[in-house]
């Protein structure tokens, strides 16, 4: 999961560092993720995994690290399976 997200961060995050160098809990904003790039990343994740982030997750904290993004995904998935 983390690896799939890492790849999307590389492709859409417009980060000054390669995503391979990022630890799961490392602060992506401190590593150079901008607000505009966060939006691009959010859209890319939605398309790649065919999910939709609910409104309550559309904030800065949801995308603060690779593991934070993975946690969002894990929260969305069961909901989608149940529906």
């Amino acid at each position: 999961m983390i690896e799939a997200i890492r790849k999307l961060v590389d492709e859409h995050g417009r980060m000054p560092v390669p995503a391979a160098s990022l630890k799961p809990d490392q602060d992506l904003y401190a590593a150079g993720l901008t607000s505009f790039a966060t939006v691009q990343l959010m859209l890319a994740i939605e398309e790649h995994f065919d999910i939709e982030f609910p409104e309550r997750m559309l904030n800065r904290r949801s995308f603060a690290s690779l593991s934070a993004i993975a946690a969002c995904f894990n929260e969305i998935e069961p909901a989608r399976l149940a529906s």
Binding site: S35, F36, T38, V39, M42, L43, F53, E55, L58, N59, R60, R61, F63
Partner: peptide
């Protein structure tokens, strides 16, 4: 839009 939610939250948090 929805992307704007992130922008808005980002602007406030910072």
């Amino acid at each position: 839009g929805r992307a704007g939610r992130i922008m808005a939250s980002s602007q406030r948090d910072q």
